[in-house]
């Protein structure tokens, strides 16, 4: 055949999209409602002593119901971090920026959040950070109630 073939296509869009309903569950809803009041609410397992933040209802190791909720002040240490340098659709902040695992003082678990008000090159594992909360009208039942974490300046009384 001496058919003139079509000009080939070289790429095709292959989007992936899934719509879910996220159900927080009773335990994590306590945590999320706390965030709307600038509170970080944790729970301890009476069996093994593990402190969960955010807390589920049951200890994942002992499968026993956790003790009554209590508040942590949110200060903690960076246990690991990465510098995001790559732009992607839906990104809220211009790269580069730092996303860290933060272990709040008194908690046995880590939160993932932004570390800002410091250059990415100056962030290090073990540094102490504190939460910066959004303004009252922006508070909600979400970790976005914490705008980011920032280094704790010892002795500094900045507000």
């Amino acid at each position: 055949m001496t058919e003139v073939l079509p000009e080939p296509v070289t790429t095709m869009p292959n989007p992936f999209r899934m719509d879910y309903t996220y159900v927080a569950g009773t335990g994590r809803s306590v945590f999320l409602r706390g965030l709307a009041e600038r509170k970080l609410i944790a729970r301890r397992c009476a069996g093994c002593g593990q402190v969960y933040l955010p807390p589920p209802e049951f200890c994942s190791r002992c499968l026993t119901e956790l003790d009554a909720p209590f508040e942590l002040d949110g200060r903690g240490v960076v246990s690991t971090f990465c510098v995001v340098s790559f732009p992607f659709p839906g990104q809220r902040i211009d790269p580069p920026y730092v996303v860290a695992h933060i272990q709040p003082h008194g908690a046995g678990t880590r939160l993932m959040h932004l570390v800002r008000e410091i250059g990415p090159e100056d962030v290090h594992i073990g540094m102490e950070v504190e939460p910066v909360w959004v303004s009252d009208d922006e508070l909600g039942t979400s970790l976005l109630s914490i705008r980011h974490f920032r280094p704790v300046h010892k002795g500094g009384a900045d507000a």
Partner: peptide
């Protein structure tokens, strides 16, 4: 329990 829409898209 709280719930919210959640979309994963690439």
């Amino acid at each position: 329990s709280l719930s919210a829409p959640y979309t994963v898209e690439f």
